[in-house]
């Protein structure tokens, strides 16, 4: 019955789960890389094209424990991963964690501004879908999300560059980190995500408008705006929290492509370089990082949800309402 201790218990359980999932994701990536014939790092080191001398190779083999069984290697890697040591890049000989940390801010800025674009556009569309009179093209507007969903982000990106960089000269692709270039990259990345959120939001708003409590609230003489804000939008917006969590994953994945279109450096260019030069520690680190971000964002969504939806705060939903008036009317019995 104590809601707060219930919630704390729930939070701890979810946190523990998340840590396990991240560790599993790391292990899984590690094993996939190692399932390939031979041990990839040794193969790469022994490739004469790469020009490593035996003297270079020995300390690397010792560092990763490459002469030991795979499970032991995994143990070595995992125990380093836990303390934040992601290994040494084979190509640049720098710590992977440093490479990731320097690439991360640019990608984060892009992904978060894209999320902001997605939310603003989605909420504007959803608001208009309910409050724009039909004769001002409400029907057309409701088609927009589906239409923009069917256009991939990179096409939007290419169009934006073509029109705003080349035609109007609003930004230059030679300085990809300028404010304007970042804004357009964020729009390219955010539009498809906004379409997804808008679709769910509009469907929910329509659903709420058909709920009995909506017409009952109307019968209490509420204004259009109050009705929309309290009885339509508020309950409709709860699933958007989950949508945002899922969108973050999509934004991270999409930002890799958008980065290359807009010529930005970031995690995208890092992983591209790592794949082409078989820099396994970097690949391993980026995949694990992506998994970790996804898990953490979903964890946050799960922890926030009960705070927004009171129905999730009580554990015995519906089973134990406050004691109702006694069923047997003592007076009726006495008669």
């Amino acid at each position: 019955m104590n809601h707060r201790s219930n919630y704390i218990g729930y939070a701890i359980a979810r946190l523990a789960q998340s840590i396990v999932v991240i560790a599993l994701a790391y292990t899984f990536t590690f094993l996939i890389i190692n399932v390939l014939p031979g041990d990839p790092i040794t193969n790469m080191l022994l490739d004469p094209e790469n020009g490593f001398s035996p003297a270079d190779i020995e300390p690397i083999i010792a560092y990763y424990g490459l002469d030991k069984p795979v499970l032991e290697q995994l143990w070595i890697a995992l125990s380093r991963f836990v303390v934040g040591d992601l290994g040494i890049s084979l190509r640049s000989n720098l710590p992977v964690s440093g490479l990731v940390l320097s690439a991360l801010p640019s990608t984060l800025v892009l992904a978060l501004s894209a999320l902001a674009v997605a939310l603003v556009v989605a909420f504007l569309l959803a608001f208009a879908s309910q409050n724009l009179p039909p004769r001002y093209g409400q029907g057309l507007l409701r088609l927009l999300p589906a239409a923009s969903l069917s256009v991939p982000a990179f096409i939007i990106g290419i169009f934006l560059i073509q029109i705003f960089a080349f035609q109007f000269g609003l930004f230059r692709i030679t300085s990809p980190n300028s404010f304007a270039a970042t804004a357009f990259a964020a729009i390219a990345l955010g539009i498809p995500v906004s379409a997804q959120i808008a679709e769910v939001l509009i469907a929910n708003l329509d659903h709420e408008a058909r709920q009995e409590y909506f017409s009952v609230a109307r019968s209490r003489g509420l204004s259009r705006f109050e009705l929309f804000a309290h009885h339509q939008f508020r309950p409709s917006s709860l699933p958007v929290v989950t949508m945002i969590a899922l969108a973050i994953g999509e934004l991270l994945g999409g930002s890799l492509i958008t980065e290359s279109i807009f010529g930005r450096t970031g995690i995208g260019s890092l992983v591209q370089g790592a794949v082409s030069s078989q820099d396994y520690p970097v690949i391993q680190a980026v995949v694990s990082l992506a998994a970790a971000v996804f898990v953490i964002v979903n964890l946050i969504a799960d922890l926030v949800y009960p705070l927004l939806d009171p129905r999730l705060r009580t554990r015995n939903r519906g089973r134990e309402p406050l004691a109702d008036e006694p069923l047997v009317d003592t007076e009726a019995v006495a008669k």
């Binding site: 709920q211 009995e212 409590y213 009952v216 609230a217 309290h230 009885h231 508020r234 309950p235 709860l238 927004l308 939806d309 009171p310 129905r311």
Partner: peptide, 9 residues
């Protein structure tokens, strides 16, 4: 059961 908004007191 359906006549009150579930997320408001």
């Amino acid at each position: 059961q359906n006549a009150l908004n579930p997320v408001r007191t």
